[in-house]
Computed example of a mutant assay.
Amino acid sequence: MSQPPSHSSGPQLAVRLAAFEGRPAVVGGVGKDPVNEPMIRHWCEALGDSSPAYAGPEAVAPATMLQVWTMGGLSGHSSRSEAYEELLALLDGAGCTSVVATDCEQEYLRPLRPGDRVTFDSFVESVSGPKTTKLGTGYFVTTRMDVRVDGEPVGTHRFRILKYAPAHAPKATHTSAAATRPRPVVNRDNAGFWDGVGRRQLLIQRCLECRTLRFPWLPGCNACGSGDWDTVEASGDGTVFSYVVMHHPPFPAFDPPYAVGLIELAEGVRIISNVIGVPYDKVRIGMPVRLEFVRYEDGQPELPVFRGDLPGEVGG
């Protein structure tokens, strides 16, 4: 079982880790594929982004794909430095054998276009002192990657991970009276949606200028920019476009594992919600689902969820 870094070794370890700041993490990295139209198309389809800027002879890649062109895939990159491997091994030796990505920051200097071949270098920008989190005690490691095309800087990518020793806390029980679900955040941009939910209606915004449907609710049309809109009521039919099964971290008033689906409605827009009526490990992409409204606790609003049925069975 992994153990958290001891207090006695903490100061000495922190000094050793700090010595890696400024040292290279990747040297002479080369993107495995040039910027290309198929990957841009897959990205845009997954995000539902139909901007004309990403197609045609003058196409550019979505800016947030910057990291995509530097990723090593399952086989990884051979350009990772010995210093970075030594840093990770030092953390492993201290019991910080688990890792989770925490956040990233990007800066864009010019658009990337199909045919561009990216190169990149990165270095260890910072290593934090020991931090105690709900996941466990560990260290935040931040790397900065400089991305280039033909030697010209095109962007930077900061990536932060937490290398930690897992905390083995007992699973929370449901005996606490304070374990209540958080209420939905209602603001001026989504108040109409929640008003509809209160009437057991799932409302989709529709642009009055170009008639494009949009969800989640936005103050303006993501296709033409118009601020004029009305709503249409969803039929309630949909399919599971994608899904995840939540196991960790446990959260008061929730009982993992449970399935959260990206549901494609019959109207063509997508919504994130729970998939009920089938075991969490039986949810599948393409599964038909039907809208329901469920109140999980007294005093809480009803929520739109989606019930799936297993083939040949009646949903329960």
Rank of each mutant, 00 (worst) to 15 (best):
Q201Y: 11
L202M: 15
L203Y: 02
L203Q: 12
L203W: 03
I204E: 07
Q205H: 04
Q205D: 06
Q205A: 00
R206I: 04
C207I: 05
C207S: 09
C207L: 10
E209V: 08
C210N: 03
R211L: 02
T212Y: 05
T212E: 15
R214I: 00
R214G: 01
R214Y: 06
R214N: 04
R214P: 06
F215V: 02
F215Y: 11
F215M: 11
P216K: 13
P216C: 09
P216W: 12
W217R: 12
W217L: 14
W217H: 15
L218K: 13
L218G: 03
P219A: 03
P219D: 12
C221D: 06
C221P: 02
C221Q: 05
N222V: 11
N222I: 07
N222Y: 05
N222P: 01
N222T: 06
A223I: 10
A223W: 08
A223C: 00
C224W: 00
C224F: 00
C224D: 05
G225T: 03
G225D: 06
G225E: 00
G225M: 04
S226G: 03
G227V: 12
G227N: 07
D228R: 15
D228V: 12
D228C: 09
W229Q: 05
W229G: 02
W229Y: 14
T231N: 04
T231W: 06
T231Y: 13
V232K: 09
V232M: 10
E233P: 05
A234F: 02
A234E: 01
A234W: 04
S235Q: 10
S235K: 10
S235W: 08
S235A: 14
G236R: 08
G236E: 08
G236I: 04
G236F: 05
D237K: 14
D237I: 03
D237R: 15
G238I: 11
T239E: 12
T239P: 05
T239S: 13
V240N: 05
F241C: 08
F241Q: 07
F241A: 14
F241N: 09
S242L: 07
S242P: 08
S242Y: 08
S242R: 07
S242F: 07
